[in-house]
Amino acid sequence: MTLRVWSRRRRDKTPHLSGASARLECAQQPVRESLNELYKYRELLYMLAYRDIKARYKQSVMGLLWAILMPVLIVMAGVVVRYAYALASGKPLETADIVGVAVKAVPWAFLVSSVRFGCNCLVGNSNLVTKVYFPKEIVPMAAVLASLFDFAVASAALLILLIALRTSWSVYLLWAPALLLNMILLAAGIAMVVSAASLFFRDVKYIVEVALTFGIFFTPVFYDVSMLGSKGKWLLLNPVAPILEGLNACVAHQHSPQLLWIGYSLGFAMAVFFGGYFFFKHLEPAFAESV
Protein backbone atom coordinates (compact mmCIF):
# COMPACT_ATOMS: atom_id res chain seq x y z
CA MET A 1 0.00 0.00 0.00
CA THR A 2 1.56 3.22 -1.05
CA LEU A 3 1.21 6.49 0.71
CA ARG A 4 0.51 9.47 -1.43
CA VAL A 5 0.91 12.85 0.08
CA TRP A 6 1.24 16.06 -1.81
CA SER A 7 2.19 19.13 -0.04
CA ARG A 8 3.03 22.45 -1.51
CA ARG A 9 4.65 25.56 -0.25
CA ARG A 10 2.05 28.10 0.58
CA ARG A 11 3.00 30.59 -2.08
CA ASP A 12 3.01 28.10 -4.92
CA LYS A 13 0.96 29.00 -7.95
CA THR A 14 -0.87 26.72 -10.30
CA PRO A 15 1.22 25.14 -12.98
CA HIS A 16 0.31 27.21 -15.94
CA LEU A 17 1.63 28.90 -19.02
CA SER A 18 0.83 32.52 -19.05
CA GLY A 19 2.16 35.27 -21.21
CA ALA A 20 5.68 36.45 -20.83
CA SER A 21 6.41 34.73 -17.59
CA ALA A 22 5.53 31.30 -19.04
CA ARG A 23 5.71 30.21 -15.44
CA LEU A 24 5.68 26.54 -14.80
CA GLU A 25 5.91 25.84 -11.17
CA CYS A 26 4.97 22.38 -10.15
CA ALA A 27 5.64 20.40 -7.08
CA GLN A 28 7.92 17.56 -7.93
CA GLN A 29 7.22 14.07 -6.82
CA PRO A 30 10.40 12.46 -5.58
CA VAL A 31 12.13 10.74 -8.48
CA ARG A 32 12.25 7.41 -6.72
CA GLU A 33 8.50 7.48 -6.21
CA SER A 34 7.93 8.37 -9.85
CA LEU A 35 10.05 5.47 -10.96
CA ASN A 36 8.29 3.06 -8.62
CA GLU A 37 5.01 4.21 -10.02
CA LEU A 38 6.28 3.78 -13.55
CA TYR A 39 7.31 0.24 -12.71
CA LYS A 40 3.91 -0.44 -11.18
CA TYR A 41 2.20 0.62 -14.37
CA ARG A 42 4.55 -1.21 -16.73
CA GLU A 43 1.77 -3.45 -18.00
CA LEU A 44 -0.07 -0.38 -19.15
CA LEU A 45 2.95 0.44 -21.29
CA TYR A 46 2.66 -2.90 -23.06
CA MET A 47 -1.11 -2.58 -23.37
CA LEU A 48 -0.97 0.89 -24.89
CA ALA A 49 1.76 -0.16 -27.30
CA TYR A 50 -0.25 -3.26 -28.16
CA ARG A 51 -3.30 -1.11 -28.72
CA ASP A 52 -1.40 1.24 -31.03
CA ILE A 53 0.10 -1.61 -33.01
CA LYS A 54 -3.13 -3.53 -33.25
CA ALA A 55 -5.14 -0.49 -34.26
CA ARG A 56 -2.57 0.56 -36.81
CA TYR A 57 -2.44 -2.84 -38.44
CA LYS A 58 -6.17 -3.37 -38.32
CA GLN A 59 -6.98 -0.09 -39.95
CA SER A 60 -4.59 -0.39 -42.83
CA VAL A 61 -5.37 -2.70 -45.71
CA MET A 62 -1.69 -3.34 -46.14
CA GLY A 63 -1.21 -4.85 -42.71
CA LEU A 64 2.43 -5.62 -42.06
CA LEU A 65 3.50 -3.84 -45.22
CA TRP A 66 2.86 -0.65 -43.30
CA ALA A 67 6.02 -1.17 -41.31
CA ILE A 68 8.09 -1.75 -44.42
CA LEU A 69 6.61 0.91 -46.65
CA MET A 70 8.46 3.91 -45.26
CA PRO A 71 11.92 2.25 -45.09
CA VAL A 72 11.44 0.92 -48.62
CA LEU A 73 10.62 4.40 -49.91
CA ILE A 74 13.62 5.85 -48.11
CA VAL A 75 15.91 3.17 -49.55
CA MET A 76 14.55 3.81 -53.05
CA ALA A 77 15.14 7.53 -52.68
CA GLY A 78 18.61 6.77 -51.35
CA VAL A 79 19.40 4.58 -54.35
CA VAL A 80 18.39 7.43 -56.69
CA VAL A 81 20.59 9.87 -54.77
CA ARG A 82 23.50 7.43 -54.74
CA TYR A 83 23.12 6.75 -58.45
CA ALA A 84 23.22 10.45 -59.21
CA TYR A 85 26.30 10.81 -56.99
CA ALA A 86 27.99 7.90 -58.75
CA LEU A 87 27.32 9.49 -62.14
CA ALA A 88 28.62 12.88 -61.01
CA SER A 89 31.75 11.57 -59.30
CA GLY A 90 32.53 8.88 -61.84
CA LYS A 91 32.85 6.20 -59.12
CA PRO A 92 30.74 3.10 -59.75
CA LEU A 93 27.78 2.36 -57.48
CA GLU A 94 28.61 -0.61 -55.26
CA THR A 95 26.35 -3.10 -53.51
CA ALA A 96 27.84 -2.05 -50.18
CA ASP A 97 26.55 1.48 -50.76
CA ILE A 98 23.00 0.24 -51.26
CA VAL A 99 23.30 -2.00 -48.21
CA GLY A 100 24.52 1.05 -46.30
CA VAL A 101 21.51 3.10 -47.35
CA ALA A 102 19.18 0.28 -46.35
CA VAL A 103 20.89 -0.17 -42.98
CA LYS A 104 20.51 3.54 -42.23
CA ALA A 105 17.01 3.92 -43.61
CA VAL A 106 15.37 1.46 -41.21
CA PRO A 107 16.53 3.13 -37.95
CA TRP A 108 15.82 6.56 -39.42
CA ALA A 109 12.26 5.43 -40.20
CA PHE A 110 12.01 4.27 -36.58
CA LEU A 111 13.09 7.66 -35.28
CA VAL A 112 10.68 9.49 -37.56
CA SER A 113 7.72 7.34 -36.62
CA SER A 114 8.55 7.51 -32.88
CA VAL A 115 8.70 11.28 -32.96
CA ARG A 116 5.63 11.62 -35.17
CA PHE A 117 3.44 9.29 -33.11
CA GLY A 118 4.97 10.63 -29.93
CA CYS A 119 4.01 14.13 -30.91
CA ASN A 120 0.32 13.26 -31.24
CA CYS A 121 0.05 10.67 -28.51
CA LEU A 122 -1.05 12.91 -25.63
CA VAL A 123 -3.26 15.17 -27.73
CA GLY A 124 -4.89 12.13 -29.33
CA ASN A 125 -5.55 10.48 -25.99
CA SER A 126 -6.91 13.54 -24.27
CA ASN A 127 -9.65 11.64 -22.47
CA LEU A 128 -7.01 9.45 -20.87
CA VAL A 129 -4.98 12.48 -19.92
CA THR A 130 -7.86 14.36 -18.31
CA LYS A 131 -9.88 11.55 -16.81
CA VAL A 132 -7.62 8.86 -15.46
CA TYR A 133 -4.58 8.97 -13.24
CA PHE A 134 -1.45 7.10 -14.26
CA PRO A 135 2.13 8.17 -14.97
CA LYS A 136 1.63 9.91 -18.27
CA GLU A 137 5.14 9.32 -19.62
CA ILE A 138 3.84 5.86 -20.40
CA VAL A 139 1.93 7.29 -23.35
CA PRO A 140 4.92 8.60 -25.36
CA MET A 141 6.94 5.57 -24.28
CA ALA A 142 4.21 3.33 -25.66
CA ALA A 143 4.33 5.28 -28.93
CA VAL A 144 8.06 4.56 -29.13
CA LEU A 145 7.48 0.92 -28.24
CA ALA A 146 4.88 0.59 -31.00
CA SER A 147 7.34 2.14 -33.47
CA LEU A 148 9.93 -0.31 -32.24
CA PHE A 149 7.62 -3.11 -33.29
CA ASP A 150 7.48 -1.65 -36.80
CA PHE A 151 11.24 -1.38 -36.65
CA ALA A 152 11.52 -5.08 -35.77
CA VAL A 153 9.35 -6.02 -38.74
CA ALA A 154 11.38 -3.81 -41.07
CA SER A 155 14.60 -5.20 -39.61
CA ALA A 156 13.46 -8.71 -40.40
CA ALA A 157 12.87 -7.63 -44.00
CA LEU A 158 16.28 -5.95 -43.99
CA LEU A 159 17.90 -9.13 -42.75
CA ILE A 160 16.40 -11.05 -45.66
CA LEU A 161 17.75 -8.38 -48.01
CA LEU A 162 21.21 -8.61 -46.45
CA ILE A 163 21.24 -12.37 -46.79
CA ALA A 164 20.02 -12.13 -50.38
CA LEU A 165 22.81 -9.68 -51.18
CA ARG A 166 25.28 -12.04 -49.49
CA THR A 167 26.61 -9.40 -47.18
CA SER A 168 29.41 -10.82 -45.09
CA TRP A 169 29.26 -10.34 -41.35
CA SER A 170 31.81 -9.80 -38.61
CA VAL A 171 32.08 -9.57 -34.82
CA TYR A 172 31.49 -5.83 -35.19
CA LEU A 173 27.85 -6.71 -35.76
CA LEU A 174 27.64 -6.93 -31.96
CA TRP A 175 27.77 -3.14 -31.95
CA ALA A 176 24.37 -2.98 -33.59
CA PRO A 177 22.24 -3.63 -30.44
CA ALA A 178 24.19 -1.02 -28.47
CA LEU A 179 23.72 1.53 -31.23
CA LEU A 180 20.06 0.64 -31.38
CA LEU A 181 19.71 1.23 -27.66
CA ASN A 182 21.29 4.63 -28.17
CA MET A 183 18.68 5.34 -30.85
CA ILE A 184 15.81 4.24 -28.60
CA LEU A 185 16.98 6.53 -25.80
CA LEU A 186 17.13 9.44 -28.19
CA ALA A 187 13.75 8.66 -29.73
CA ALA A 188 12.08 8.27 -26.32
CA GLY A 189 13.62 11.52 -25.08
CA ILE A 190 12.44 13.49 -28.09
CA ALA A 191 9.00 11.81 -27.96
CA MET A 192 8.53 12.87 -24.32
CA VAL A 193 9.52 16.46 -25.05
CA VAL A 194 7.36 16.91 -28.14
CA SER A 195 4.35 15.08 -26.69
CA ALA A 196 4.26 17.42 -23.69
CA ALA A 197 5.07 20.52 -25.72
CA SER A 198 2.35 19.80 -28.26
CA LEU A 199 -0.23 19.67 -25.46
CA PHE A 200 0.55 23.27 -24.59
CA PHE A 201 1.32 24.63 -28.04
CA ARG A 202 -0.78 23.26 -30.83
CA ASP A 203 1.65 24.34 -33.54
CA VAL A 204 4.47 22.20 -32.20
CA LYS A 205 3.30 19.38 -34.42
CA TYR A 206 3.80 21.46 -37.57
CA ILE A 207 7.29 22.38 -36.48
CA VAL A 208 8.01 18.72 -35.77
CA GLU A 209 6.69 17.72 -39.21
CA VAL A 210 8.95 20.23 -40.93
CA ALA A 211 11.92 19.15 -38.84
CA LEU A 212 11.28 15.50 -39.69
CA THR A 213 10.85 16.20 -43.39
CA PHE A 214 14.08 18.13 -43.76
CA GLY A 215 16.03 16.38 -41.03
CA ILE A 216 16.95 13.62 -43.46
CA PHE A 217 19.14 16.09 -45.39
CA PHE A 218 21.14 16.91 -42.27
CA THR A 219 21.51 13.28 -41.38
CA PRO A 220 23.71 10.87 -43.28
CA VAL A 221 20.98 8.55 -44.55
CA PHE A 222 21.27 8.98 -48.31
CA TYR A 223 24.95 9.78 -48.16
CA ASP A 224 27.96 8.95 -45.97
CA VAL A 225 29.72 11.54 -43.91
CA SER A 226 32.97 10.67 -45.67
CA MET A 227 31.55 12.05 -48.93
CA LEU A 228 31.73 15.53 -47.47
CA GLY A 229 35.43 15.23 -46.83
CA SER A 230 36.86 17.12 -43.88
CA LYS A 231 33.63 19.12 -43.36
CA GLY A 232 31.79 15.86 -42.68
CA LYS A 233 32.62 15.94 -39.00
CA TRP A 234 30.32 18.90 -38.53
CA LEU A 235 27.45 16.67 -39.57
CA LEU A 236 28.43 14.18 -36.89
CA LEU A 237 27.39 16.77 -34.34
CA ASN A 238 23.85 15.71 -35.23
CA PRO A 239 23.45 13.00 -32.57
CA VAL A 240 21.67 10.69 -35.01
CA ALA A 241 24.59 10.78 -37.44
CA PRO A 242 27.13 8.80 -35.37
CA ILE A 243 24.52 6.10 -34.76
CA LEU A 244 23.70 5.70 -38.44
CA GLU A 245 27.35 5.92 -39.46
CA GLY A 246 28.18 3.38 -36.79
CA LEU A 247 25.52 0.98 -38.05
CA ASN A 248 26.77 1.46 -41.57
CA ALA A 249 30.30 0.69 -40.44
CA CYS A 250 29.52 -2.41 -38.42
CA VAL A 251 26.84 -3.95 -40.68
CA ALA A 252 27.74 -2.93 -44.23
CA HIS A 253 31.49 -2.47 -43.99
CA GLN A 254 32.51 -4.83 -41.17
CA HIS A 255 34.58 -2.47 -39.14
CA SER A 256 34.28 -0.78 -35.78
CA PRO A 257 32.33 2.48 -35.43
CA GLN A 258 34.12 5.67 -34.39
CA LEU A 259 34.05 5.26 -30.63
CA LEU A 260 34.51 8.92 -29.77
CA TRP A 261 31.53 9.98 -31.79
CA ILE A 262 29.46 7.11 -30.47
CA GLY A 263 30.33 8.26 -26.97
CA TYR A 264 29.23 11.76 -27.90
CA SER A 265 25.97 10.49 -29.33
CA LEU A 266 25.28 8.32 -26.31
CA GLY A 267 25.93 11.23 -23.97
CA PHE A 268 23.63 13.40 -26.05
CA ALA A 269 20.91 10.74 -26.10
CA MET A 270 21.10 10.27 -22.32
CA ALA A 271 20.90 14.02 -21.81
CA VAL A 272 17.85 14.19 -24.08
CA PHE A 273 16.24 11.19 -22.42
CA PHE A 274 16.68 12.30 -18.81
CA GLY A 275 16.19 15.95 -19.66
CA GLY A 276 13.03 14.98 -21.54
CA TYR A 277 11.85 12.86 -18.65
CA PHE A 278 12.26 15.67 -16.12
CA PHE A 279 10.74 18.17 -18.50
CA PHE A 280 7.78 15.84 -18.92
CA LYS A 281 7.36 15.18 -15.19
CA HIS A 282 7.64 18.88 -14.54
CA LEU A 283 4.77 19.69 -16.88
CA GLU A 284 2.68 16.62 -16.06
CA PRO A 285 0.57 18.20 -13.29
CA ALA A 286 -0.57 20.87 -15.74
CA PHE A 287 -1.65 18.42 -18.44
CA ALA A 288 -5.24 17.98 -17.32
CA GLU A 289 -5.77 21.71 -17.24
CA SER A 290 -4.32 22.49 -20.62
CA VAL A 291 -6.34 20.08 -22.72
Binding site: T2, R4, R8, N127, L128, T130, V132, Y133, E289
Partner: peptide, 24 residues
Protein backbone atom coordinates in the same frame (compact mmCIF):
# COMPACT_ATOMS: atom_id res chain seq x y z
CA UNK B 1 -5.63 13.92 -12.35
CA UNK B 2 -5.04 17.45 -11.07
CA UNK B 3 -2.94 18.70 -8.22
CA UNK B 4 -4.09 21.20 -5.63
CA UNK B 5 -2.65 24.69 -5.79
CA UNK B 6 -2.27 24.69 -2.03
CA UNK B 7 -2.98 22.28 0.72
CA UNK B 8 -2.64 18.55 0.84
CA UNK B 9 -4.67 15.48 0.12
CA UNK B 10 -4.07 12.29 1.98
CA UNK B 11 -5.43 9.22 0.29
CA UNK B 12 -3.67 5.98 1.10
CA UNK B 13 -4.90 2.88 -0.61
CA UNK B 14 -6.09 2.06 -4.05
CA UNK B 15 -8.43 4.61 -5.50
CA UNK B 16 -10.72 4.03 -8.41
CA UNK B 17 -13.01 6.48 -10.12
CA UNK B 18 -16.27 5.79 -11.88
CA UNK B 19 -15.96 9.05 -13.72
CA UNK B 20 -15.66 8.51 -17.40
CA UNK B 21 -16.57 4.95 -18.19
CA UNK B 22 -14.57 3.64 -21.08
CA UNK B 23 -11.99 6.40 -21.26
CA UNK B 24 -9.24 4.73 -23.22
Amino acid sequence: VMKPTRGSIYLPGKCSALIELGAG
